[in-house]
Design a protein around this nucleic acid. Structure first.
Length: 429
RNA sequence: GGAGAGAUGGCCGAGUGGUCGAAGGCGCAUGAUUGGAAAUCAUGUGUACCGAAAGGUACCGAGGGUUCGAAUCCCUCUCUCUCCUCCA
């Protein structure tokens, strides 16, 4: 959510931001509503002050007659206030709805562009493996090795479901462990195992609702929502809290299953395990001081990249242009690994700096000062900046490993980093 | 799922219709005291919004109601705890 004050006082900057995003936003409607809200608030509060004063006078009981007369005046005032407050409520609701649907503004450093064709490839890391045979895509390799069962996945759950079997399942579990171990032991993140179902408010906090509800699964009876990413429960851990500035940055890493409808993408990426309704992911989430957030994003990206480095998988870093930024992001970088079997770059991580956009929605703030943070109110309470990134998404990382380390005989050479999770074995299959 | 109890400021905890934004304690901040610290004493200590300011408004889990006036009375909901039931 954007700062209403910013919209009011720096309207041109905001307008310019939306122009760079390439989205049409009726800012004048927002400003008019804001005007109306403040006017109604002032009017009702003025009368409320009058009313409060009157009530106190009644308590001091001048005479029974005077009291009755004052009561009548009070009743009239109440009527007036009720009318104004009702109008205020409506106006505030409209304003809130509009604000919740405004996307975040891009950081000035983000390259302007129309769509993903204008994204900027920042750099390429690692060396693509050269094969002495023609590498096969993971769907063939996995089926032949008996570790990915597409047919039974569809039988059990429907299209876009599969199941992993034998050493394939173990490989995925090993990858999850490797990522969690790396981020907790080497990069200093605290591990969280979050709920995979959340309540509605949590999704509003991260920006998934109200706008993107049709990509989510939910249990209508209980109004429980299945998380599309661990970002949702982990970011909302600190919803409505005022954190101690001394505790920042807070760094969390969380494994979770993720659930997405992918309605829009029907027919795309249908082969293999690239895109499903359910997938595993290890997610990195940071809560930081505003002035450090750009540097923290660089660090987060490096932490995610480290997984690919440790697995010795070639990848590239892509910066999203303004036209391809997600709703909540201010800056965003993707990591794409090279899949030699499918012969394409696959997005395995998306690292974003949300600025205070999510923090404002979820009311995640911090304050400097020792102990309880109540130090005489000298330090201002401010919104934190939130960041997150995959570290990494499992199915596509699995694709990278399977396609890069495949052998002509249908077995798999294990990357050195994974061997401890297989009792030291160098080959599986 | 059934029965009961509860939800007050950073924490503990008082408060059953007006002088309560809320006693008291803890914690914290500042000052005094000290060679330094502890202890002690004094003062101060919520959030948000409106306003240039003075000041005002709202908030005692959430939402509604009664009343001139609600932390206090009524209704609905949410959450927590205890017991039973069920269950990985």
């Amino acid at each position: 959510m954007l700062d209403l004050r910013q919209i009011r006082e720096k309207t041109d900057e905001v307008r310019d931001g939306f122009a760079r995003l390439g989205v049409a936003v009726d800012l004048d409607a927002v400003l008019a509503l804001d005007e109306r809200v403040r006017r109604l608030k002032n009017e009702s509060q003025t009368i409320a002050a009058e009313q409060n004063k009157l009530s106190k006078d009644i308590a001091r009981a001048p005479s029974p007659e005077a009291r009755e007369a004052a009561k009548a005046v009070g009743a009239a005032l109440r009527q007036k206030i009720e009318g104004l407050v009702a109008a205020l409520g409506v106006a505030e609701g409209e304003l809130e709805t509009k604000l919740l649907e405004l996307p975040n503004l891009p950081h000035p450093s983000v390259p302007v562009g129309k769509d993903d064709g204008d994204n900027k490839i920042v750099r390429e890391e690692g060396v693509k493996r050269s094969f002495s045979f023609a590498p096969v895509p993971h769907w063939d390799f996995g089926a032949q090795a008996g570790i990915i069962d597409f047919d039974r996945g569809v039988k059990v759950s429907g299209s876009r479901f599969y199941l992993l079997k034998g050493w394939g399942a173990r490989l995925q579990r090993a990858l999850i462990s490797l990522m969690l171990d790396l981020h907790t032991q080497k990069h200093g993140y605290t591990e969280i195992l979050p709920p995979f179902m959340v309540r509605r408010e949590s999704l509003v906090g991260t920006g998934n609702l109200p706008k993107f509800g049709d990509n989510l699964y939910r249990d209508a009876e209980e109004d429980f929502w299945f998380i599309p990413t661990a970002e949702v429960p982990v970011t909302n851990m600190y919803r409505d809290e005022i954190l101690d500035g001394a505790d920042l940055p807070i760094k969390h890493v969380a494994y979770s299953a993720c659930f997405r409808r992918e309605q829009m993408a029907a027919g795309r990426d249908t082969r293999g395990i690239k895109r499903g309704h359910q997938f595993d992911k290890v997610e990195l989430v940071k809560f930081v001081r505003p002035e450090t957030s750009l540097d923290e994003l660089t660090g987060l990206l490096a932490d995610a990249e480290d997984v690919l480095k440790v697995l010795e998988l070639p990848y590239r870093v892509v910066q999203m242009c303004t036209g391809d930024l997600s709703f909540s992001a201010m800056v965003k970088f993707d990591l794409e690994l090279w899949a030699p079997g499918c012969n394409e770059w696959l997005e395995v991580s998306s690292c974003s700096n949300f600025g205070e956009f999510q923090a404002r929605r979820a009311k995640i703030r911090f304050k400097d000062g020792k102990g309880s943070g109540k130090d005489g109110g000298k330090d201002k309470t401010r919104f934190v900046h939130t960041l997150n990134g995959s570290g990494l998404a499992l199915p596509r990382t699995l694709i990278g490993v399977l396609e890069t380390y495949q052998r002509a005989d249908g077995k798999l050479d294990l990357p050195v980093a994974l061997r401890p999770y297989f009792g030291g074995d160098e080959v599986v299959g």
